[in-house]
């Protein structure tokens, strides 16, 4: 399906570059998900896609629709704000879950439980 909106040359160049850049970064992030060896290394990889990768594609979408409808369209900002707030929450929760599981099973070299015990005491 080779199809694209009819944009002026400058906008087409910017949109094309941003889309390619963003998707390349996202691909690199998931390649890291496959290639890195331990779970704690792998957690870092998808962040590539969720920060700059998403940012580039959202910017491309904003430019594309603003030029097409010749008025500023910025509702993509919502996705950016939403992702900025939620990605850290999911990653922190996931890392804590992994740490908790590793600690209870005594696997890998994860830092000791000193923090948790202190919290449970009070």
């Amino acid at each position: 399906m080779m199809q694209a909106p009819d944009l002026p040359l400058w906008a087409a160049i910017i949109v094309g570059f941003l889309v390619l850049f963003g998707s390349a970064l996202t691909l690199l992030g998931t390649i890291g998900l496959v290639r890195l060896k331990t779970f704690y290394d792998r957690v870092h990889a998808p962040t590539l896609g969720s920060t700059l990768g998403t940012g580039a594609i959202l910017l491309a979408s904003m430019i594309c629709f603003s030029v097409l409808q010749s008025r500023p369209i910025i509702h993509e900002v919502l996705i950016a704000v939403f992702l900025t707030i939620t990605t850290p929450v999911t990653l922190i929760l996931l890392a804590r879950a992994a740490l908790y599981r590793d600690r209870t099973e005594g696997r890998g070299n994860v830092p000791a439980d000193s923090m948790e015990k202190k919290q449970h005491r009070d």
């Binding site: 399906m1 080779m2 694209a4 087409a12 949109v15």
Partner: peptide, 10 residues
């Protein structure tokens, strides 16, 4: 330009 952009998006 349409062709070029279509290629990039694909």
């Amino acid at each position: 330009t349409v062709m070029m952009l279509a290629f990039a998006i694909t």
